[in-house]
Structures are given as C-alpha cells and as structure tokens.
C-alpha cells in the first residue's frame, strides 16, 4: 500500500506550524471506497423502489379534502411549529411567528453560522456551546416533526 505524507495547511490557534496527516492517494483508495458505497446505495434504492413503489392516489380533486393530509416529511417541522405556536406577541400575530421562525429565522441562522460562531477550534471538546446548541436544534426539529404528525 502506498502511503504518502501530505501537508495540512490549516492554521490552528495552538500550533502554527504545519500539521502532517497521513494521506492516501485519491486513486485507487478513495475512489474504490466511493465505488463500493455507490454500489451499495444504488442497490438499496433499487430494492426500496421494488418493495415500496411510489404511490399514486386518486386524481386531484379541489373540492374534496382528504384526511389526513401531510406535507412532505422534510417540511413537517415547519407545519408542526405552526400548529405549536399559538401565542400573539404584542402586535405580531401567532401565525406570522409560526411561519417566520422555522423558515426565515432558522435558515437565516444557518446561512450566517460561520460568521456567528467565531470560535476557531474544530476540536469538539472546545466547542461545548456550539455542540449543545446543535443538539438542542436537532431535538427541536425532531419534536416539531413529531408534533406535526400528531396534530394534523
């Protein structure tokens, strides 16, 4: 196996000298792993598609609302939060908060994350606040997804 040394140019706060990490050539090591994973994923997709084919319900009828109706699973947390938040904040209506918080504010925070989190360390032990906030956000999304399923 051909092992080579590559240089890591990242400057970290504690050591400013270059860190050496063991590197493997992209070809064939990295590519081989990728191909194995790709075969596995492609096979799984074909298996899932054969066992659970995509559904097709009755044609759209604007005059009959089916029960229950759910949005796509990745939007359920927005839907769940909208159902969850029922309090008006002063002049701001509950519904406005219910859609703005999980869409505009949440995505705004995601976009700005690297500019909000100025801690230069990528060591998980030195990022306790960021990790805690991440876990809270994750549990929150799971909770509101659950809330959206229960309170449709």
């Amino acid at each position: 196996m051909s092992l080579i040394e590559i240089e890591k140019h990242e400057v970290e706060e504690e050591h400013h000298e270059q860190v050496r990490v063991r590197g493997l050539p992209f070809f064939p090591h990295f590519l081989l792993r990728e191909i194995v994973v790709m075969c596995f994923v492609a096979g799984s997709l074909i298996l899932l598609a054969s066992l659970y084919p995509a559904g097709l319900q009755t044609p759209a009828d604007p005059f009959t609302t089916p029960e229950p109706i759910f949005p796509e699973w990745y939007f359920l947390y927005v839907y769940g939060f909208l159902k969850f938040w029922t309090w008006n904040l002063g002049p701001i209506e509950a519904k406005i908060i219910g859609v703005t918080l999980p869409m505009v504010v949440w995505y705004g925070l995601l976009f700005l994350l690297p500019f909000i989190d100025r801690n230069p360390s990528s060591d998980i032990r030195k990022r306790k606040v960021a990790v805690a906030l991440g876990v809270i956000a994750l549990l929150g999304i799971l909770y509101f997804t659950y809330f959206g399923i229960v309170h449709h």
Binding site: I4, I6, V21, R22, G23, L24, F26, F27, H29, F30
Partner: peptide, 11 residues
C-alpha cells in the same frame, strides 16, 4: 484529481 491525495480519515 486522480493523483491528489485524500486524508486517511476521509477514506
């Protein structure tokens, strides 16, 4: 790209 090394942890 083929000759470009990938760090071991990423593999």
């Amino acid at each position: 790209i083929v000759k470009h090394p990938a760090p071991e942890y990423a593999v």
